[in-house]
Amino acid sequence: MTDSAELRKLAETVASTVGREVATRREGGFSFTTKSSTSDVVTEIDTWSEDTVVEMLSTSRPNDGFLGEEGTSRSGTSGITWVIDPVDGTTNLLYNLQGYSVSIAARTEEHVIAGAVFDPVRDELFSASRGQGAWLDGNTLAVTPITDLSIALVGTGFSYLAEQRRAQAEALMTLLPEVRDIRRGGGAAIMLCEVASGRLDACYERGLSPWDSAAGVLIATEAGAITHEEELVYAAAPGIAKPFAALLQTMGA
């Protein structure tokens, strides 16, 4: 086992190095295709990013396991598995919008212990170590002190599948009158980091994969958010967490 702070530093280095090259490659042009639906895009940059992240991590830690969105699945012997989203928010990458990231988390059998999320557009690096706090470019993160759900700015995301998107849109009709407003910015990793940094008061999304949320949930939790990570993933400032969770249940999020 390696100290979580060491794993965080490695994740920071790899995520920022690969993330900056992702931005460079995006400007140079790229090809893309789709996966589960026409909304579910994958580019050659995604596959290059995952391959490079795995190569860099393997060089430092050859006995670790890997789980990546674009197909990497490798068992290790160290007790550490790296969970990788090489480009979280690929649609935003495709349209050259802010909101995509490189997300890397280190987990044991029990829980995620370190993670980093790099935003190539803003050149921002979010990271956390379990039990040690969360940071944005070295500065300590903390969620907002909000206590009134009616003035909360809430982030969300939508499924790639048409029927699920329809149900999610209907659920928003219950949410919108109860909060200040909603935002749908891009990938889940950045959205969770925006709760951690106080740019959002809460967020939620259903149907995420482990690589979508592993690093972001840790970062939000270490910044003080109340988080939930099952079929429905959410993060909220403590002062609104209970009514927010109740609202999500009422609206069938």
Rank of each mutant, 00 (worst) to 15 (best):
S75C: 00
D88N: 14
G79F: 09
T81P: 06
V87M: 03
L94V: 14
F66H: 01
T91Q: 12
D88L: 06
G89F: 03
G71H: 04
L67F: 14
W82N: 12
S73M: 07
V83I: 15
L93C: 07
N63Y: 05
D85T: 13
S78P: 14
R74K: 15
D85L: 05
N92I: 09
W82V: 12
E70K: 09
T72S: 09
D64E: 11
E69Y: 05
G65H: 03
D85H: 10
D64K: 06
W82H: 13
D85Q: 13
D64Q: 07
R74F: 00
P86G: 09
I84D: 00
L67D: 10
E70Y: 02
G76L: 06
T91S: 11
T77C: 00
T90N: 04
L93F: 03
G79W: 09
D64F: 03
D88R: 12
S78C: 10
W82G: 06
D85S: 10
D88P: 13
G89A: 08
N63M: 08
W82F: 14
T90S: 08
T90D: 02
L67V: 15
L67S: 14
V83D: 04
V87T: 13
F66Q: 00
I84C: 01
G71E: 03
I84T: 07
D88H: 13
G89S: 08
D64L: 03
S73I: 10
P86N: 09
S75R: 14
N92F: 04
N63H: 14
T91P: 00
T77Y: 01
V83Q: 07
V87E: 03
D88F: 04
G68R: 11
S73A: 13
T72V: 11
D64Y: 02
E69Q: 12
S78N: 10
I84L: 01
R74C: 01
G71R: 06
D85Y: 11
L93I: 12
I84G: 01
V83A: 05
P86Q: 07
V83G: 04
N92D: 13
G68Y: 07
G65W: 01
S78G: 11
G89R: 10
F66P: 00
I84M: 02
S73E: 14
D64A: 15
S75W: 03
G76F: 03
F66M: 01
I80E: 05
W82P: 10
N92Y: 04
N92A: 11
G65K: 04
S75T: 15
S73G: 00
E69H: 08
G65M: 02
L67P: 04
T81A: 13
L67I: 14
E70A: 06
P86V: 01
D64T: 14
E70S: 06
D85E: 10
F66G: 00
G76D: 05
P86E: 03
N92G: 06
D88S: 08
L93T: 13
S75A: 15
G79Q: 10
V87H: 06
D64W: 04
L93S: 09
V87S: 07
T91W: 00
L94T: 12
L67T: 11
G68W: 03
S75I: 13
V87N: 05
N92Q: 15
T77Q: 10
L93A: 07
W82S: 11
T81H: 03
